[in-house]
Design a protein around this nucleic acid. Structure first.
Lengths: 205, 205
DNA sequence: ATATGTGAAATCTTTCACAGCG
DNA sequence: CGCTGTGAAAGATTTCACATAT
């Protein structure tokens, strides 16, 4: 009886939340679909329609309570808790991710980091030791972590992804320039910046 | 008379190209919409429809020449040349980007990098000196660069974006956790990883 | 025999416009 | 009166299925 909510709607909720948290930091108590829409470049009707998939969060004639809507969106997105994440690849990007304050501020906590380079294994990044890739499956299994960020070179990415799946990972943020093949119940988001740059250059010249 | 091609199609072309380059590196001379679709999880019909917007690149009964289609896609996306890019923010992420080999391999060349921290200004990252934010508009104007990657903290991002627009930037890859407000002719892609993590946690638990 | 390119159909997404509530 | 929530309409995207070319 549960209707499935389109992925495209889920993808907009974090954007709504980002803007609402911004309003909240600025002390705004109430907003409207109109105001929120103008802040993020999305139509008021679309925001109302999207939110209506999950409940009735507004008051007619009044708008939405900012703190209440923030709380509701956090619950919907399951970010009303702290998620541990694992980083695979301790190169420049992996290290930058491990040290990025923005994850902590939003309830994501880097808990494990792996690399296969003997010169890196054992070294400290922030408060974590870089672990050997040989330890990947047992360590992740033991930790119960479900979310991974993949920053290894393309030729290694598919094999690592398969190990992540074996270890019980269900969500992969993939920085490697390759389409990963994974089971249906594992979600992959490709965030290779080159893809986005190539998209944007279409509109140049 | 030129029909506008939907943005959603443009966004898939870099994915096609990524897979085709992968095939090319493995020596594959020919492929089909079916085979390409299986590699990236997109239907064969959609690939054919997308490509048909730009011309007739295949041969009936035969399929597509991999090197030819790679060349055509590069021309369509305007990546049959080297693009200089500017990085704003020389923190962990900005430095990781400045050193990322993947950009060079795909025709993007970091040419300038800016920060507003006096402790960073003047320091070397790879072959580049970190420049002062005060120099941002004149230096970018002089260079003629059109593409920027924004890795500054959220509170600074909107102001920096406005300066980028003044300096003639037309494409911004935005890592800051905020929706930027820019003129219509400037393209922004938001790549804040927190947005993607929040999207994925919806499907967990 | 095989695989493209493409109208037509099906599906999905967004916008419209207004009843209804505070 | 102002703004939500929502059916219905419009618009966009994807899939189907086949004529056509090699």
């Amino acid at each position: 009886m549960e209707k499935t909510i389109p992925d495209i709607i889920i993808g907009r909720l974090p954007i709504y939340l980002q803007a609402l948290e911004h309003m909240q930091r600025h002390g705004l108590q109430t907003t409207s679909s109109q105001e929120l829409g103008e802040a993020i470049g999305i139509s008021a009707a679309q925001i109302r329609k999207d939110l209506s998939q999950f409940g009735e969060f507004g008051k007619q004639g009044k708008g939405y309570s900012v703190p209440f809507l923030v709380e509701q969106l956090r619950a919907i997105l399951h970010i009303d808790r702290v998620w541990d994440i694992v980083v695979i690849g301790a190169g420049n990007l992996g290290q930058a991710i491990a040290n990025y304050q923005g994850f902590r501020d939003h309830g994501f906590q880097v808990a494990l980091i792996f690399d296969n380079d003997p010169l890196r294994i054992g070294h400290q990044i922030g408060e974590f030791q870089i672990l050997s890739m040989d330890e990947l499956v047992p360590q992740i299994e033991k930790s119960g972590i479900k979310v991974a960020m993949l920053t290894v070179p393309a030729p290694a990415a598919q094999e690592v992804a398969e190990n992540l799946v074996k270890a019980g990972i269900k969500s992969i943020l993939n920085y490697a320039p390759i389409t990963l093949s994974v089971p249906e119940d594992v979600h992959v988001q490709n965030v290779d910046p080159v893809l986005y740059l190539q998209w944007m250059t279409y509109y140049l010249e």
